[in-house]
């Protein structure tokens, strides 16, 4: 602590002591609270009411903003959960435990949003035949739809499509790119406006 700040701290303490002394006589025996003191005139009471209202309003606004932010966050999480792709092994449409977990996380969203409809798009890596990969992508999308239907979600809520190797996420030729490109993606085709987070 420097000398200067020490002086500043002392003067602050002194000021506080002075103002405490000055306020003391104003304290009345009447109970504190919303009831205005007899010494408070109408203007005084209005001003107190206004400030009380402002305080209440600001609390309500803060609460509303917090709720909205929470809802927003929950909706964003919901959307992200819904859009989360599932990944596949090379030349396979089998759903791994990870893929099943990704799909299971989507189930409450489908249950909470009966008007929600989704397009499942199957994709492949660049290896193999361009054309055969379209069929493989179709098989992947179909496997996803079948799994979700098996979990009790109406199959009519899913459209499936394949883009084969035509739309890679990572346009590179290495294991990591191939892993990222062997996927099924999820696109909302109905019910996006009324989407709510599951309870």
């Amino acid at each position: 602590m420097t000398r200067g700040t020490r002086v500043l701290a002392l003067s602050v303490l002194a000021l506080a002591a002075v103002s405490a002394c000055r306020k003391k006589p104003e304290v009345t025996p009447t109970p504190s609270g919303p009831t205005p003191s007899p010494t408070c005139d109408q203007r005084c009471r209005d001003s107190i009411a206004l400030s009380e209202k402002r305080r209440a309003d600001s609390i309500a606004a803060a609460n509303a903003a917090r709720d909205a932010a929470e809802r927003e966050r929950a909706l964003a999480t919901t959307k992200a959960t819904l859009a989360a792709p599932v990944y596949f092994e090379y030349d396979s449409d089998e759903l791994s435990p990870d893929a099943r977990a990704t799909l299971d996380a989507k189930l409450p969203i489908f249950r909470a949003n009966p008007s929600l409809r989704i397009r499942v798009a199957g994709h492949t890596d660049e290896r193999g035949s361009d054309e055969y990969n379209l069929a493989l992508g179709q098989r992947r999308a179909a496997a996803v739809k079948r799994y979700l239907s098996d979990q009790g979600i109406d199959g009519g809520r899913f459209e499936i499509v394949s883009f084969g190797e035509e739309r890679p996420v990572v346009a590179e030729s290495n294991e990591e790119a191939w892993r990222m490109n062997r996927r099924a993606e999820f696109e909302i085709i109905a019910g996006a406006e009324s989407l709510v987070a599951p309870k």
């Binding site: 054309e131 379209l134 069929a135 179709q138 098989r139 179909a142 739809k145 079948r146 499936i160 499509v161 394949s162």
Partner: peptide, 22 residues
């Protein structure tokens, strides 16, 4: 759904293609 890899038969009338759905 998926309709692809068409090929004409030598007769010139028949077309064979691959169709995939679910």
């Amino acid at each position: 759904g998926l309709n692809m890899t068409p090929t004409f038969a030598p007769d010139g009338y028949t077309i064979v293609y691959a169709h995939g759905a679910e």
